[in-house]
Design a protein around this nucleic acid. Structure first.
Lengths: 174, 174
DNA sequence: AGCGCTTTGTAGCACTCGCTACAAGCGTCG
DNA sequence: CGACGCTTGTAGCGAGTGCTACAAAGCGCT
């Protein structure tokens, strides 16, 4: 048993139950150990969560690449719509649940969450840049515009107002 | 002492400490009572939270109207930028902290949070409709586009990537 | 005054939380 | 073999959780 062995089942548990109320004993049970051992391997809960966040960010990046490989979108709007649709698929729901826990943690000034969130956004931003149309006049600005609309639409979908976000997606120019 | 007397100090406490880890005893202390009395007046914690969410939604609507009265924006983009700037002011930070707790709660299938979030989004949507330029060709669609970008930009600001969201705001057409 | 109702205080329940003290098992190496 | 260090189990601590049992105030009513 090591961190590397422990992280996958721990991440699976978090994806199913959310990050906010993941406590040591249930986590340990999910990974087939005891809270005692989690603390032995990670030091304390904060370090565990930090390791978990990093691992989950990697999982998210992999999942994105698997779900939507190399091809470029025909337009900014199409790129945004594609990401929106992909992340709306059931297999992405656990990621979003964790994501909103992370965002909430950021607003409560949790440094680890803040770092993780920034990293995840950077990964997603790069990913969008690489999937923008070939001839986009300003891929950096384009990716930012696309990201903003995607995230807004995802949030609105999460709170039960998908129509609002989808109208926002449709209004994206380019 | 009644619900109406209790709610303001309770809401103040939640705005300062977040909704996620607000427990009965600290809440009661903030309101000058005991956990025993909170349960007496509200029945149980879920009902307390539901009442609190409703009260906070009202506070948010009032705060919006106070911060940005009746005038209309010259463009959709300006309208979005104004809301973004207003909600970036320090006095709105507590609302956003609570807001992300609510969104996270929605992703965890908490019905009370879901209802509150939907209501708040509807209020904000109506507010945006009323502040769009006079001659907007399609205020409903416009407000939705504006909302999507605002929320995306707010989220990106909350996780430490304000530049991304602001580029998104700048790319809003109209 | 005495009754009944609403409001309040004290104390406690059973539980979970993160974390730790202590010791037993374990394989490795001298 | 024995001693050592890495890994693990058991048990528990002190604090906090939502909630409840019980009783005592305060109040208006007849």
């Amino acid at each position: 048993m090591s961190r590397e062995t422990l992280l996958p089942p721990l991440a699976a548990y978090v994806m199913q139950h959310g990050l906010a109320d993941a406590s040591l004993r249930p986590l340990a049970k999910a990974a087939g150990t005891s809270d005692r051992m989690l603390l032995y391997h990670f030091g304390n809960k904060d370090a565990l969560v930090a390791a978990l966040l990093e691992y989950l960010a990697g999982m998210f990046a992999d999942a994105l690449d698997t779900a939507f490989p190399l091809q470029r979108a025909p337009s900014r709007r199409a790129c945004a719509k594609t990401v929106y649709d992909i992340t709306g698929r059931p297999e992405f729901a656990p990621f979003l649940r964790v994501w909103w826990d992370i965002v909430a943690g950021c607003s409560n000034n949790n440094a680890a969450y803040f770092d993780a969130a920034g990293g995840i956004m950077d990964v997603l931003l790069d990913w969008v840049v690489d999937h923008l149309p070939e001839g986009d006049p300003d891929p950096q600005a384009g990716a930012r515009a696309v990201m903003t609309v995607i995230e807004g639409a995802q949030m609105l979908r999460s709170v039960g107002r998908p129509d609002v976000g989808e109208a926002g997606l449709a209004a994206l120019e380019g």
